[in-house]
């Protein structure tokens, strides 16, 4: 330091100031979490478990955050006393080391177990009565497709892609006759599992349903399946969560969750 040498007395104002700043930061950020001014979008699917896990981790990390930051602030204030002759020469404590290593390990293990259980459920096999739907990402639109009355998706072939045939649907295939193709619109019935086949024509995209806690990258050359149950009727937004080009921010679609009857009615209207 430049202006040291003279031993000053009393606590350093800077220590107190930094401590206050840290405490203030903790209070403001925690209060905003409590206030939930900005929070997870309204839940509209059966994936409430994810919210539960989020909340559990929030409580655990929240406590750790408050305690550790508060301690840091406290130490800064408490040990900034310049009148103290000398700091302590103490740099080992086996019991302390063991306590915080084991403590962290135990807490993290619990979180791992809870999280993994949920993860296996999310990626479990879909129920048999699940409604099959296909969603294909392309720059910068979502194309959804329903198999139609025959319950089978028609054959598609990339060689048939054209501005007029966005999925490359093979019209020779009888199964493709009644396929329903929509752009940026997806209709699902409430309370029935939906089994979404995700594909991409060009770049990586990520099929993101904020209200449903669903997010899954769509990868060219791969078909990835995801299933979930919409639990609330209404219109929800579909977003893209993986950079896919300059229109990435505009890759917005709408998901309409209809009543069971409403959905059947809608489906009947689509048929040829």
């Amino acid at each position: 330091m430049e202006e040291k040498a003279t031993v000053k007395s009393g606590r350093s104002g800077e220590g107190l100031f930094l401590a206050l700043l840290i405490w203030l930061m903790v209070i403001v950020t925690t209060a905003l979490f409590f206030k939930r001014a900005w929070w997870l979008p309204t839940l509209a699917s059966d994936r409430g478990g994810i919210d539960g896990l989020f909340f559990a981790i929030l409580i655990v990390t929240g406590i750790a955050f408050v305690v550790v930051q508060a301690m840091l602030g406290y130490f800064l204030w408490r040990f900034s006393d310049r009148s103290v002759a000398r700091a302590a020469y103490w740099h080992e404590s086996r019991p302390l080391e063991i306590t915080w290593t084991l403590g962290t390990t135990v807490i993290l293990s619990i979180l791992i177990l809870v999280g993994l259980r949920l993860w296996t459920r999310v990626f479990s096999a879909p129920p048999d009565d699940a409604l099959p739907v296909e969603v294909t990402g392309q720059q910068f639109e979502w194309t959804s497709r329903y198999p139609g009355k025959d319950g089978a998706f028609g054959r598609t072939d990339p060689k048939l892609f054209s501005p007029d045939n966005r999925l490359g649907l093979d019209e020779q295939d009888p199964a493709s006759k009644d396929d329903i193709v929509l752009v940026n619109q997806l209709y699902l019935p409430v309370d029935r599992p939906a089994r979404v086949r995700l594909r991409s024509k060009d770049m990586l995209h990520s099929f993101f349903l904020p209200n449903f806690r669903v997010k899954q990258d769509t990868v060219p050359g791969m078909t990835v399946e995801n299933w979930f149950v919409p639990t609330k009727e209404g219109d929800y937004e579909i977003a893209c969560a993986e950079l896919c080009g300059l229109g990435h921010y505009k890759m917005r679609g709408l998901l309409h969750v209809l009543s069971q009857e409403g959905f059947e009615k809608w489906l009947a209207e689509q048929g040829p």
């Binding site: 330091m1 040291k4 350093s12 800077e14 220590g15 930094l18 840091l72 130490f75 800064l76 040990f79 900034s80 006393d81 310049r82 103290v84 000398r86 700091a87 302590a88 103490w90 740099h91």
Partner: peptide, 9 residues
């Protein structure tokens, strides 16, 4: 390390 230190800010 900060415990019982003599902190210089």
């Amino acid at each position: 390390t900060l415990w019982r230190a003599k902190i210089e800010f």
